[in-house]
């Protein structure tokens, strides 16, 4: 097909291709130079949900919820997540209800106009550790623990970043001074992070008996936060797969129909004989 093109067309196409490649190169270079900073980029990890059609590991999400509940939630809120969101993902309805009832929520006003406390319901959102941002800052030496509801979407690298951050604490290299209330973590932008190393080996005991190593804890909480950011993840991939399947069929059918309708046009010979 390419051989049939005229010389001018070939040159044009070649120039267009070179221009596209060059432009993409420039954009990539600019992108890299913009995001370059004094911190280490998280290495991409082999998550079990990396594939085009790979679902999240729900057992890992359940363990990750346990890590969040027992460790992270002392400082970090997840205010866009409700207890009902756990149903059908990590917990059964009874379990979710039991979890919700462990917390007291302010409700009201009642008949006398007073606010009152009641145990949580499924429709309640995850309780917040601090009343407001100011209180959170005051309790954490000026650092604000971010809300974790959409953190995997809000940070470059997503769950890779979270895993790297959880496991990346180390002593600062020579020549870098870290203030007393800060910690050195090369994966954190700026490398000085206000959060103390949150996870250790055996910091909690998993209910399903998985050994709670630092790597396991970090992996589970990363998967949990990915799910929280993207609750539609599994459904999205399932639909994507079906979409590709049905469009394969449709493309085949429409190609046949096109050829069928065009065959009259395509197999017609028109000869023009100029009058002598």
């Amino acid at each position: 097909m390419f051989a049939r093109l005229s010389r001018g067309r070939k040159v044009l196409l070649g120039a267009l291709g070179a221009l596209t490649a060059g432009g993409a190169g420039v954009v990539t270079a600019l992108h890299v130079s913009v995001s370059a900073d004094e911190f280490v980029h998280p290495p991409p990890l082999k998550w079990s949900h990396n594939g085009l059609f790979s679902a999240l590991d729900h057992k890992s999400i359940r363990r990750g919820y346990q890590v969040y509940r027992q460790v992270c939630s002392t400082c970090h809120s997840m205010k866009y997540l409700a207890f009902r969101n756990l149903i059908g993902v990590t917990h059964t309805e009874e379990e979710a209800k039991a979890i919700a009832e462990e917390y007291m929520f302010m409700d009201g006003p009642d008949e006398e106009g007073n606010m009152f406390e009641r145990p949580g319901k499924l429709s309640d959102y995850f309780p917040r550790p601090y009343e407001n941002d100011e209180q959170a800052r005051a309790a954490n030496a000026g650092s604000l623990p971010p809300d974790l509801s959409y953190i995997a979407l809000a940070r470059h690298g997503g769950e890779d970043y979270i895993f790297a951050l959880m496991t990346g604490y180390c002593d600062p290299p020579a020549g870098i001074d870290i203030r007393d209330e800060l910690y050195y973590n090369p994966y954190f932008p700026g490398a000085a992070i206000g959060m103390a190393p949150p996870l250790y080996n055996e910091i909690l005991e998993y209910e399903d008996g998985t050994p709670a190593t630092l790597g396991q804890l970090a992996k589970d909480v990363s998967v949990f936060l990915r799910w929280a950011s993207e609750p539609e993840h599994d459904q999205r991939k399932r639909m994507g797969m079906k979409m590709l399947m049905i469009f394969t069929l449709l493309i085949g059918a429409s190609y046949y129909m096109k050829r069928h309708k065009w065959s009259v046009m395509k197999s017609r010979k028109i000869a023009y004989r100029p009058p002598n």
Binding site: I246, L249, L250, A253, Y256, M257
Partner: peptide
């Protein structure tokens, strides 16, 4: 048959 199949998928 092919067109009908396409219509079903559509």
């Amino acid at each position: 048959m092919l067109v009908g199949g396409g219509a079903v998928a559509g």
